[in-house]
Amino acid sequence: MRGSYRLVVGGWLIAVLIVVALGADRLAPYDPGAQALSENLAPPGARHWLGQDALGRDILARVIHGARVSLAVGIITVLVSLAIGTTIGALAGFAGGWIDELAMRAVDVLLAFPGLLLAIALTSVLGPSLRNVVIALSLIGWTGYARLARGEIVRLRERELVEAARALGVPEHRILLRHLVPLLATPLLVQATFGMAAAIVAEASLSFLGLGAQPPTASWGAMLNDGRAFALVAPHLTIFPGLAIMVTVLGLNCLGDGLRDRLDVRAPSGI
C-alpha cells in the first residue's frame, strides 16, 4: 500500500510524543525546574541520563516537559490557523467576486514576507512570550489553509451536487457548510500535519532567538539557546533538545507524506 511505511513510522513517533507530553509529570525523573547548582553542566550519567544544564536541572526532565510546549504550541497554532484559513478561504471561494479578490490579496501581502521573518517581527513588537508566538504564528499560518480551501471550493462549486442541492431549494449557506466544507477535511488534514511540523520548528526557532518561551519554561528551542554558551564544555545541552525537535518534525513529515499518499490528496508537500 502506498505510503504505508511512512504512515506507520510517523504515526508511531507522534503517538509516542503525545504520550510523553500528556504523561510528562509522571515520566520525568525529576522536576524540570529543580536546580542543583553544585552539579551544573554534569555530563550524562547513571542518575541524570541526559546530563544537567547550567543550573543543574535535569535535561531529560526538561526534554520531556518540552514536548508539552512544542505539542501545545503546534496544536493550538494549527487549530487557530485552520479555523481562520478555512473560513476565509471557503467563503472567498464560494462567494467569488470582490470578497474573493479581497481575501486573496490579503493572502498575497502576507506571502510577500518570508513566514519566519514576519513571526520574528510580530513577536518583537508583541513582546517575547509563548502566547505571542502562538498569536504571531496563527496570524501568518492561516494563509496556506485559506488558499487550499478556496481552491478546493472553487473546484467543487461547479459540481453536480451543488446544482442538485440548489434545485432542491437548499439555502446557500447550508450547501457550503453541509455539503462542501466536509469535502475539504482530507486535504486540510494533510496540510495541517505539515503545518504542525512548521509551527513546532517556528516556535523552537523563535525561542532559540529569545523571542519565544521565557525562563524557566522548558522549551526545546530555549534549551538550545541556553546551550550555546556552553557548546565547548557541555555539548549535551545542545544535542538532546535538538534531537527531540528533529524526531518530532521527522515524525510529522512522515505522517503527512504517508497520509497524502494513502488518501491520494493533491495537497502541497510540507517541504
Binding site: 538550545l224 550555546r228 557548546a231 555539548p235 544535542i239 533538545p241 528533529m246 518534525v249 512522515c254 507524506d257
Partner: peptide, 21 residues
C-alpha cells in the same frame, strides 16, 4: 526527509562541535 526535519539551529551547532571543535 532528514534535511527538512533537521532545524538549522541544531545542525549549525552540531557542525561546529564536529568540524570546528
Amino acid at each position: 526527509l532528514l534535511g527538512v526535519s533537521v532545524p538549522s539551529f541544531w545542525l549549525g551547532p552540531m557542525l561546529i562541535l564536529l568540524l570546528s571543535i
